[in-house]
Amino acid sequence: MWAFIHKLGSPKWFYAISARLQPWFWALAILLLLVGSVWGLVFAPSDYQQGNSFRIIYVHVPAAILAQSCFVTMAVAGVIFLVWKIKIADMAAAVIAPFGAAMTFVALFSGAVWGMPTWGTWWVWDARLTSMLIQLFLYLGVIALRGAFASRDSGSRAASVLALVGVVNIPIIKYSVDWWNTLHQPATFTLTERPAMPVEMWLPLLVMVLGFYCFFIALTLTRTRNEILRRESAKRWVRELVAGTARRG
């Protein structure tokens, strides 16, 4: 078990194994996203209350789920980096942060755009939207802190600590925002909580969520590989690898 983890922590080994994994994840992501999009946009029935605007759910919900998963993944990677000094974990965390922020933004934007036909305004201080907004600020803080340090290692460790602090706080923030929301505007019609969605509606949603996850994994693998090339460029195996690609192409 430990041997495996340490092997996984070696950039060279990770680079080799991820080369074999990433085409599968990219293919799966493209397939699932295409199937889910066509299914959700064209074949799923329209909602009897919201009409076709409900089709935003197929990008809003996966993005929102991913936005949260990315933060947790980032924090877990931060712990692995802080405790076991495994560099790969930090490379992954560095790569996940901007993508998580992008997904948070997608969730916010699609939520606002969905709010217009549903509530009649672009922005409602709805509990979910508000905690998403706060989460976006947390992401931006982690990204900014990492960039603010002159030495990469300090930046990595500081960002890991902040990600950890953030992940402890997210449930507290969510709970307080929910509480605040029920106090200030009771019984609003929430976007996604609805009684018993029919199968034809949630099945494409499931496909989209899986597609987003595959995309996330594929992108993280690819960009972590890039990060390895960047940070380990002085290592011999990277130099040989670069020389090899030069000869081929």
């Binding site: 706060i134 802190l145 603010a148 340090f149 600590v161 925002v177």
Partner: peptide, 23 residues
């Protein structure tokens, strides 16, 4: 503590801390 080593940590400090103040 995270920003004490940075020469211009002031605004960054607000960005880091204010979201955590919300609860």
């Amino acid at each position: 503590a995270l920003t004490v080593g940075l020469s211009r940590g002031g605004v960054l400090l607000s960005l880091l801390v204010l979201p955590l103040y919300i609860p």
